[in-house]
């Protein structure tokens, strides 16, 4: 009796879409942490834990960005460049003496414009998302370089102390503010994705765009929205980067769009769309951050770190593909048996 009841609880947890993958990856994450803790006891020190969380936060934020886009079956390659653009625009405005908060709002506005552009190119002009966002990626990087005449900015100075504390150095209840920002963003966007109408539409568009259209979903508006979410999150990540260094650097955010893909995909978001939950992205981003932090603590040289992380990404996704393909075969067989004659009837 006891056993069957347990199984029911299990079943209920697993019946939430996407939780299965998240649980497996979480187990992997815990194992990773154990290994790193054994390699270097400092790994679990409160100081490092806090640092680690702060390291994970930007990955999580861009991961949320990419997950939104991936779930609709598209991709956003402009994330890293928008991050760099955000960092440079905000820093430039602040060094010119603008109030940091006004500068932040203007910066986010610029980022949202890139998001709208991405969305319109993909949804209305029907460009393949890979190409469209490759274009905006280059454009945004160009803007990042041009705002301060192709130079990194000077320090944003003392006036911006509040800004730097808010985005990076401050602590709230013993936790770095960056982490709090990431968690707040995650709560908001997870709520939108799992509980609201827009969220349902995002999954429907990624699962079957034709069926979504025929169910009255305004597909273009959904696609534009996810690109705006993506650009907004990238913009926030850019402000965090600016606050971290206290200056704008032109090449900040390089390759972040791909780290974001990695965080999403490790967490179980399908690059084909329609599948994945943001809780998975949290775990995926954590795996990424733990690898970076743990390997450097263990004294691995950068090159080796990259190789190991690359291998982990491929293996985690491969494992998922293998598991899922087994499942799919069974299902499609069932269905095809009843559908075979249908094809025949079309003379």
């Amino acid at each position: 009796m006891q056993k069957s009841k347990n199984r029911n609880v299990f079943k209920r947890i697993f019946s939430i879409r996407g939780v299965g993958q998240v649980v497996t990856v979480t187990i992997g994450l815990i194992m990773l942490c154990v290994v790193f803790a054994l390699l270097n006891p400092n790994f679990t020190s409160p100081r490092n834990t806090n640092n680690l969380l702060r390291q994970i936060a930007p990955f999580l934020i861009v991961g949320i960005a990419q997950s939104y886009v991936l779930i609709t079956g598209n991709i956003d390659l402009s994330i890293g460049s928008v991050l760099g653009m955000s960092c440079m625009i905000s820093a430039t405005l602040m060094t010119k003496g603008m109030d940091p908060w006004t500068a932040s709002v203007i910066t986010l506005g610029c980022c949202l414009l890139v998001g709208v552009l991405n969305g319109v190119l993909v949804a209305n002009c029907k460009l393949p998302p890979f190409i469209a966002t490759l274009g905006t990626m280059t454009i945004a990087r160009g803007i990042a370089q041009i705002v301060n005449n192709n130079m990194n900015t000077d320090s944003i100075g003392e006036a911006a102390k509040g800004f730097r504390d808010f985005f990076y150095y401050g602590k709230f209840m013993g936790i770095y503010s960056t982490v709090i920002i990431a968690i707040v963003l995650w709560i908001i966007f997870d709520f939108i994705l799992s509980k609201t109408r827009t969220g349902s539409h995002i999954y429907a568009v990624g699962s079957n765009i034709e069926a979504a259209k025929l169910s009255g979903v305004n597909v273009s508006s959904v696609v534009i929205k996810v690109y705006m979410v993506s650009a907004f999150c990238s913009g926030i990540a850019g402000l965090i980067t600016c606050a971290t260094g206290g200056l704008g650097t032109m090449d900040s955010g390089n390759s972040f769009e791909l780290y974001a893909v990695a965080a999403s995909v490790i967490g179980g978001v399908s690059t084909l769309g329609g599948q994945g939950i943001l809780l998975g992205t949290v775990v995926g981003a954590s795996v990424w951050g733990v690898m970076q932090n743990g390997l450097s603590l263990a004294g691995a040289p950068v090159a080796l770190r990259n190789i190991i992380i690359g291998i982990i990404v491929v293996i985690s996704v491969l494992a998922d593909v293998v598991v899922r393909s087994g499942k799919w075969n069974r299902k499609t067989k069932e269905v095809s048996a009843t559908d075979a004659p249908q094809i025949e009837k079309r003379n």
Partner: peptide, 10 residues
Amino acid sequence: KRDGLCVKLS
């Protein structure tokens, strides 16, 4: 399959 259902959704 093509126009009516999102087969990956519940």
